[in-house]
């Protein structure tokens, strides 16, 4: 359960709409199922009372939507951002993708979101409701009645290893601001380390198994707040990689290497890509590999922590190691 309720957010948004401070609100609207929360623009309080939600399924990070939405009208747009979303917001500002003056950020606290995929893995299909009871969830299902599971097991990977619950950008905050939680975040690279410890062949088969499931829906690219080019190589019919060729393992790798490489140094580890993947491919393992290499070789860097910081990938030092030495050093 989230400590801040939808009504608190609607009340504050209504005040800001009435005062003319903002003329529309970017928020979460409930979708076809209660767990299918979708991003939406609200123009009035009535509209918000009708469809706005704030619950455990509001994982969607709105930062990227601001690029297009803030350009649509002259007024300010109100946007709700969770702590991890604000990193993407800063990163986009760093890249001059929109004008901060045209946005109004309300920082909302987050108690961790739930991943419906993980829940369905445990309880099966037909989820019609979820209630919280302490550390447990009571999942109501259509076919098998109520089922219990630990809340922890339903958390997506990004919440399990949350970078910290402090907002790095906001115009105002609602609810209580939590302290940063480094202990939690240190688990971020466990998955990467596990893979690194395998043999080259094992890794090859692991990724072959994961990446061959990709249907090239491009959702991971479309959702990524670091990925905002207007024209993308993956949409170019002449590139030879704009589509899925089911039989071809090369294309899968090329797409994934380039997608992750393109955002290396700018990826805030917001976890949106893994969240939206319909095939449940652990894309964060690719991004975090780059992040851990960058941290290890070129110094700790968190994209989006401050506006205007210089990514290690557009920087250099004379003392950098050559690739062969660097990769060898990492292994020790």
């Amino acid at each position: 359960m989230q400590k801040v309720t939808r009504d608190i957010l609607i009340d504050r948004a209504a005040e800001l709409l009435a005062s003319g401070m903002v003329n529309r609100v970017l928020g979460w609207r409930s979708g076809e199922f209660f767990y299918d929360v979708v991003p939406a623009v609200f123009r009035s309080e009535a509209d918000m009372r009708d469809g706005f939600v704030f619950d455990d399924f509001c994982g969607c990070n709105f930062s990227k939507y601001l690029v297009k939405e803030s350009a649509r009208s002259d007024g300010r747009i109100l946007v709700f951002l969770k702590p991890c979303d604000t990193y993407s917001y800063n990163q986009l500002l760093t890249e001059h993708r929109f004008d901060a003056e045209k946005t109004y950020v309300i920082g909302v606290p987050c108690d961790g979101m739930l991943d419906i995929g993980r829940i369905k893995e445990r309880v099966g299909e037909g989820v019609i409701g979820i209630e919280a009871e302490g550390d447990e969830l009571i999942v109501k299902t259509l076919y098998d009645g109520d089922k219990r599971m630990k809340r922890e097991d339903a958390l997506p990977d990004r919440c399990r290893h949350c970078k910290g619950k402090k907002h790095v950008a906001f115009d105002e905050l609602i609810g209580e601001e939590c302290e940063e939680n480094d202990e939690n975040a240190s688990g971020r690279f466990e998955g990467v380390a596990e893979l690194e410890a395998m043999t080259s062949e094992q890794r090859y088969f692991f990724w072959q198994n994961e990446l061959s499931r990709c249907i090239r829906c491009n959702a991971c690219r479309d959702v990524c707040p670091a990925c905002t080019c207007e024209k993308c190589v993956f949409d170019n019919p002449k590139s030879g990689v704009e589509n899925k060729a089911a039989s071809d393992s090369f294309e899968e790798k090329l797409f994934h290497i380039i997608r992750a490489f393109h955002v290396a140094g700018r990826c805030t580890d917001c976890g949106e890509c893994s969240r939206v993947c319909p095939q449940h491919i652990p894309l964060h393992l690719l991004n975090r590999k780059f992040i851990s290499d960058i941290n290890g070789l070129y110094g700790e860097y968190q994209a989006g922590e401050t506006v205007g910081s210089r990514s290690p990938m557009v920087d250099y030092s004379r003392a950098d190691l050559d690739p062969s030495e660097a990769i060898g050093k990492r292994e020790e």
């Binding site: 080259s200 780059f290 290499d293």
Partner: peptide, 21 residues
């Protein structure tokens, strides 16, 4: 110098994907 950083990350990623270093 940029080549050095870029190729380090790329080669490391290839290695991570199980492609012989």
């Amino acid at each position: 110098y940029y080549t050095r950083r870029r190729m380090t990350l790329l080669f490391s990623m290839l290695d991570y994907l199980g492609i012989e270093r």
